[in-house]
Design a protein around this nucleic acid. Structure first.
Lengths: 289, 289
DNA sequence: TATAATTAAGGAGAAAATATTCTTTTTGTG
DNA sequence: CACAAAAAGAATATTTTCTCCTTAATTATA
């Protein structure tokens, strides 16, 4: 599995905990809960302290740290300590009320969206992003896969990459994805999009793709999901949902944002990008009034 | 002994070392020199490591930490780790440079996105938003139309509305859109998405739809475009592009944001919305690993 | 439903790291 | 040069982390 774990002094550990939360065991979740609730105390605690506070065995604490990608408890604590340096202002009230008028709702939503942007920025891992850009530019052909809501995002990415002049196709039908993956060969690149990271219709083809020698990038909200395990490069978006049920809403938004970053970097790196953009733009001009 | 030393997460340890440097003994200065020269290594070192690197005894390292006011080596390391966090330079300049490294690009893009959010919020017209919500809830059936990039947005909207239990279909093939529009009748609602607002493949069907008695909402970036002229309700997103050519990128992002606002309002207003959301969510659960 | 297989969790003790005590060395002073 | 005082380090004690292994729980399979 690609190393997506934290480097010291880079990504936001507390957020990372959220992103792998669902893949934690019951006991590990207890540890996660304590750490998220009392990060300051955590930094000064010993393994034994923390295990007592969280009501679990010491070993489980260590396992928890390892799962986050740290070598041990010590590195974990250092990283949490770094998180505590100018912490984001504890959110004002962005929770939406039944009685809020439309303008208030719109304002609160805007604030929630802003927070989402910041959170995802914290999760951006430069190494992985760079790897993704390089792979996209180097690939013979890019295959974008996604189903459901992520399938629509796949179309978006297809559209963007095509505009840049890359050789790309996108699929969102699970059967066709399976077939497509079975035909892949070395030099091909799969870009798999799955919020949960656990969608069978995507995980199986990704395995198949790997077996056939293709490279795999995945865009997901869960670091320790099956799909992230098989992928060579993982792009992570904040999976912390918006207060108002809006898991799906937030996800789409974050995916779009992440793809924008990716596309911008590609445009900067690709030599004839602007030429392609111009050509594709011109091609639809006479469809306008 | 009264504790006078630094608390974690407060002062700058490296600077403090300099400030007490003159009061250190010869051996302690060796430690100080090493720490100042290699803070990254220091953070990951053990007492023994550091004592060897600095060429002093272990005890001297401990004494050094105490002199700085820490309770021990451990606290000292935590504090140095916090010093190493590079506070993100608050970017004022959001224009992206060729030479910017990836993290800088990501930060600048985030800022640009934030500005976009604010701009669109300014454009939100409560009356139109309310009208759109009411019409969507009242319509017999909703027809979402869009081509090109906006066609993908149409799929997104379709997905969202379906989740809420509305009677909705989406089309992004210009012929099918034309045919669909020719069959509309009173009680039907067209939701036309077109960034430019001038796309023939959309403008003509919208005219046709109006003629057939259907209601029309449009989502566009241009208030004074043909499509906005024919529509009953106009939802406007900021069409001011991002500095870096990214018209298309910004547009998609803003559309997503606007649809999120719309969907949230719909969820609040529709009586059985949460029930529908639950049902649709459950329907895909067994597709997961 | 029983049984096997796998995964999760914790305890005991080994290994490693930190801290203390005490001895040795160095430095300064009359 | 002797002595005191401070500085530095070695040896050792203590604390903390981590590994290994056992037991419990869960899941899969017959």
């Amino acid at each position: 599995m690609a190393r997506v774990g934290p480097r010291l002094n880079q990504s936001n550990t507390l957020l990372m905990i959220s992103s792998i939360y669902s893949s934690l065991t019951k006991t590990e979740k207890k540890v996660a809960d304590y750490v998220k609730a009392y990060p300051e105390e955590t930094v000064l605690a010993t393994v034994t302290d923390l295990s007592e506070k969280a009501g679990v065995g010491e070993t489980s604490v260590i396992r928890f740290c390892r799962k986050l990608g740290f070598r041990g408890f010590h590195e974990f604590k250092l990283s949490v300590a770094q998180d505590l340096v100018d912490r984001p202002p504890s959110v004002i009230d962005t929770s939406i009320d039944e009685q809020d008028d439309m303008m208030t709702v719109a304002r609160k939503l805007t604030l929630q969206h802003e927070i989402l942007l910041k959170n995802t920025l914290d999760l951006v891992n430069t190494d992985n992003l760079k790897m993704a850009v390089d792979k996209l530019l180097a690939a013979n052909k890019v295959y974008v896969y996604g189903v459901g809501s992520s399938g629509i995002t796949a179309l978006d990415l297809h559209y963007q990459l095509m505009r840049l002049g890359l050789n790309v196709e996108a699929h969102r039908d699970s059967h066709i994805i399976a077939m497509s993956a079975s035909l892949l060969k070395k030099g091909d690149l799969v870009f798999a999009i799955s919020t949960s990271g656990s969608t069978r219709d995507l995980v199986d083809p990704v395995k198949e793709a790997k077996k056939n020698g293709a490279d795999v990038i995945c865009l997901t909200g869960h670091l320790r999901s099956p799909i992230a395990t098989y992928a060579d490069t993982v792009l992570l978006v904040s999976s912390r949902e918006m207060p108002t049920e809006g898991g799906a809403l937030a996800t789409k938004f974050m995916q779009t944002y992440m793809l924008n970053i990716l596309t911008t970097l590609l445009t900067m790196k690709k030599v004839d990008a602007s030429e392609s953009l111009e050509k594709t733009a011109r091609s639809v001009v006479d469809k306008l009034y």
